[in-house]
Design a protein around this nucleic acid. Structure first.
Lengths: 154, 154
DNA sequence: GCCGATCACGCAATAATCTCGCGTGCCCGC
DNA sequence: GCGGGCACGCGAGATTATTGCGTGATCGGC
């Protein structure tokens, strides 16, 4: 996974993170390369794991999102592993972060509505192994969502 | 934006949210349709806004993520609007949710490292209009990240 | 300072994929 | 029972992706 990224790489990765539906020719025009050169760079990102995959982004306002702050009973690695495995088994878990501070995990749940959310919260969180307690913040408005990551300082 | 989605639509949307790099023929095999039928359905999702766009997902472990809980001074719509506009202007803001509960917003920041994070936090949050206080949870491990949304109950 | 190796590039031919018009069958309302 | 509207599969044509080849630049060793 070579971190040897030049200016064009940064530009390309920005463009791909915004919209990967563009053709190689379009990308080439935007960054000043031929289509084949673009193709070879993009293939390199994929092979190195820098670019994991391409996904379609579904309008999040069609769903009910909830941000849950989770605290576990103990700090043992085994307990963390069990908890992760348990939570990841649920497809409604959109994001799972191990975080520093008062809580151990931040879990983002995406469901079709409150009934669905209750079922998922009961099944996934309430009965999760090693869970001490959790609190839920319901998302009133998903103002902005992305998975964009900066490849260099702005 | 017709919510008239049949079983094949749900299946297709699941597949596209997992990996939109597949060819129309592959998708057709997986859902039992011809490539052209798949193409027409996918085009409908895009036209209706159900599918917003396609993006490349960059490995998040290459970045420093931070989940910030923000409380504003007042509840006025104008203040919320100003705050949103201010925060959204920063490209390092990966996600911005207006939430219920003790805090007003959840902000996910993605930066290249702690120096970058400090600059962004100072510029984007500390000096945000109407901000009363915020707390930061640093992401130790981005166990799972996606923008996947369920289109029906599981 | 020169030479060879390596790498990324552009170009062009080929292969793969997408796009779209057409004809057919199904379902629903009349 | 009889149209009308839809979504389908098929297939031709256009667009796009892929790959081999030759060239120029850069770098390290001699």
């Amino acid at each position: 996974m070579p971190a040897n990224l030049d200016e064009i790489d940064h530009h390309l990765l920005d463009l791909l993170q915004q919209d990967s539906g563009r053709t190689l020719a379009e990308l080439g025009d935007l960054v000043g390369l031929s289509p084949s050169a673009v193709q070879r760079r993009v293939e390199r990102y994929r092979a190195s794991g820098l670019v994991r995959r391409e996904v379609a982004v579904v309008d999040p306002s069609a769903a009910l999102l909830a941000v849950c702050l989770v605290t576990l009973d103990h700090e043992s690695p085994e307990e963390h592993a069990r908890f992760r495995e348990w939570v990841l088994a649920a497809p409604e878990v959109q994001q799972l972060y191990n975080v520093s501070g008062d809580h151990d995990y931040v879990v983002v749940l995406a469901t079709t509505g409150m009934p669905h959310h209750r079922r998922v919260a009961d099944r996934v969180l309430k009965s999760a192994p090693g869970l001490r307690r959790y609190s839920t913040m319901f998302v009133l408005d998903p103002v902005w969502t992305s998975l964009t990551v900066p490849t260099r300082d702005a």
